[in-house]
């Protein structure tokens, strides 16, 4: 039995255990949590191959899990007709004065970093800004921006396939697209407060 088989054995045991958990679970909201557990074991199965290719394949796998989670959570809220929490915003001096500066620094730093984690840093900046300042109808704007990021990505893909000489442009396009994409996804969190009560 080599290392791969030992790892595979353990992972499949984990898969079986997590499915037993899913089998016994009755509550809708807890099902989502257990589903996350199941998905992680799927990623471990990819990890076991232990090549650069496997490392690259984990990213799509992870994204699929996260995006389905996003959608299902929203579907759950809609299904149960849960109201949005309405509460008075906290009145703190810092929350009114600091956002422009801190957000600006974070966004610029994120753009310098570029790529995936750059998007996350810039996104945190925007989350902070939207949370403190509050914007109405930013949701649709973010959706449009993420649409453009998607289009950029497709363009980069076709440059790679049709004009391989221009690989540098394509890498930059993809890097820019992932930056914008991750930023908009993160900034979304800041806008989930329905404008008026901010």
């Amino acid at each position: 039995m080599d290392f791969y088989q030992a790892g595979l054995f353990c992972t499949l045991v984990c898969v079986a255990i997590s499915f037993i958990a899913l089998f016994r679970e009755r509550d809708d909201i807890h099902k989502i949590l257990v589903v996350d557990l199941v998905e992680t074991t799927g990623l471990v199965l990819i990890c076991l191959v232990a090549t650069d290719l496997a490392e690259a394949l984990i990213l799509p796998g992870l994204v699929v899990g996260i995006s389905e989670l996003l959608m299902l959570a929203e579907l759950y809220i809609r299904k149960e007709k849960l109201p949005l929490p309405s509460f008075k915003p906290i009145k703190i001096e810092v929350m009114r004065t600091a956002p422009p500066i801190i957000s600006f620094v974070l966004v610029v730093y994120g753009i310098i970093l570029s790529g995936f984690s750059g998007g996350a840093v810039a996104g945190i900046g925007l989350v902070f800004y939207f949370l403190c300042k509050g914007y109405e109808e930013r949701f649709e704007l973010l959706e449009t921006v993420s649409g453009y990021a998607w289009a950029l990505w497709i363009a980069a893909f076709f440059i790679f396939m049709i004009l391989p000489q221009a690989w540098l442009i394509a890498v930059m396009l993809s890097g820019g697209a992932i930056l914008v994409k991750v930023t908009t996804k993160m900034a979304l969190i800041g806008t989930m407060r329905e404008g008026h009560n901010v």
Binding site: V35, E39, G42, V64, L75
Partner: peptide, 26 residues
């Protein structure tokens, strides 16, 4: 409600899809 249950199954199924592909790769 049905769509939600279906969504959970669709989400869990990715484990097997990716697992099958990665076992073939391995």
């Amino acid at each position: 409600n049905a769509a939600y249950n279906y969504g959970i199954v669709a989400m869990v199924a990715t484990t097997f899809l990716f697992g099958g592909a990665s076992i073939a790769l391995g």
